[in-house]
Amino acid sequence: MPRRPPPIPIRRNYSRDLKNRVIHQHYTLQRKTSEISVNLDMPLRVVQRVLGTWKEIGDVCRERKGRGRRRVLSTHNMQFLIAIVDRNPDIYLDEIQDEIWTQHGVDVSIKTIHNSLKRLGYSSKKLTRQAAERQQERRDRFFLEIGGIPPEYLVCGDESAVNLLTTYRLNGWSVKGVRAWKIAKFIRGTRCVLTLLFPLHVLTVSQDTQFYQR
């Protein structure tokens, strides 16, 4: 019959407190390593390693060194990534890749850029556009002026125009929990009035015939 391979031992992790008990029993209670192994239910080799580590560095645990390879993007590159996304939230990942290569000479993959944005707390979401032509001061002044006019003197109209701004991107990057928005131009061409304008106080709506009557 073919020989069975020996079972692979399962390596256990022992707490610092349990390792300190090894030191206590060896130096304070003057017990042998074999007795400590039985008392604490630890392999003899583990007891010997704990005692060896204590003699070498004066502690039962060594400081863990950093695992894994070094990140491609440094702290300075990450700050540049945050700045470029905040300045242009609807930028594509391949455009970020080109910017990092042009400005810093770092060749990074699109997947790395995506993971870095996720780690920084950014997510891709629906982009909200704010009109670049908006003037908040004039808007506030308009609300104050129109607030004093009776509703029956207001005139409503319908306008139509050709939309020339259909190439805007729909999604953008922003921190999780914060809306992604960007200032964009809202002028879409020459607007034409399609319906006649009438003051509201001379128009009534008939619910039965659905026609406008004077």
Rank of each mutant, 00 (worst) to 15 (best):
Y92H: 09
P199D: 02
R119F: 08
R119W: 01
Q30T: 07
T75Q: 12
H26F: 15
V205R: 11
S160G: 11
F80V: 05
R141M: 05
Y27P: 01
E56G: 00
H24F: 11
R191I: 06
G147M: 03
K65P: 00
E95C: 04
Q30G: 06
Q207T: 13
Q25V: 03
E152V: 06
T28R: 02
P2N: 13
E35R: 03
L144N: 04
V50C: 07
Q79G: 08
G148P: 00
E133I: 10
E137W: 04
R45S: 14
L194V: 11
L200W: 06
L29V: 08
V38P: 00
F80D: 07
L40M: 03
E99I: 14
N88G: 00
V38T: 08
G58H: 02
M78L: 15
N115E: 12
E95W: 02
V108I: 15
V46I: 04
R141H: 01
R129P: 00
N20Q: 15
L164C: 08
T190V: 13
R129Q: 05
D94Q: 14
V50W: 00
R69L: 10
G172A: 13
H104F: 09
Q136C: 01
A131V: 04
E145L: 08
E152C: 06
I82V: 14
V178K: 12
V178R: 09
E95N: 07
E35Q: 14
S116C: 10
L29R: 10
G172F: 07
Y92V: 07
S124Q: 13
I187F: 14
R169D: 08
R31W: 12
H104R: 07
Q103T: 14
R21H: 08
R62C: 01
I57T: 02
R67N: 05
R3E: 12
P89M: 04
S206G: 02
N171R: 13
A132I: 11
R64D: 09
L194C: 09
R70S: 13
M78N: 06
R138F: 08
P5H: 11
R64V: 12
Q79L: 12
R179K: 07
I57R: 02
P6I: 08
L29G: 00
Q130R: 11
E145C: 02
C156F: 14
K118A: 14
A83E: 11
I96Y: 04
A131Q: 04
R139D: 15
V38K: 05
K126Q: 13
R4M: 09
A83Y: 01
Q97V: 10
H201Q: 05
V46T: 15
Y92Q: 11
P9G: 06
I57D: 00
R12A: 14
D94F: 15
Y122R: 01
T112Y: 03
L197H: 06
R87T: 08
P151E: 11
L18I: 14
R188N: 14
Q213R: 03
H104S: 05
L194N: 11
P9M: 09
E137Q: 06
L203D: 05
G58P: 05
A180M: 02
W54T: 03
V50Q: 00
R11G: 14
V47T: 04
L197C: 10
N20A: 07
I84K: 01
F142G: 03
R129H: 07
E63R: 00
S160N: 02
I146R: 01
K32I: 03
G148H: 07
D59R: 10
S74N: 05
Q210T: 10
K55Y: 08
I84E: 07
L194R: 04
N13M: 15
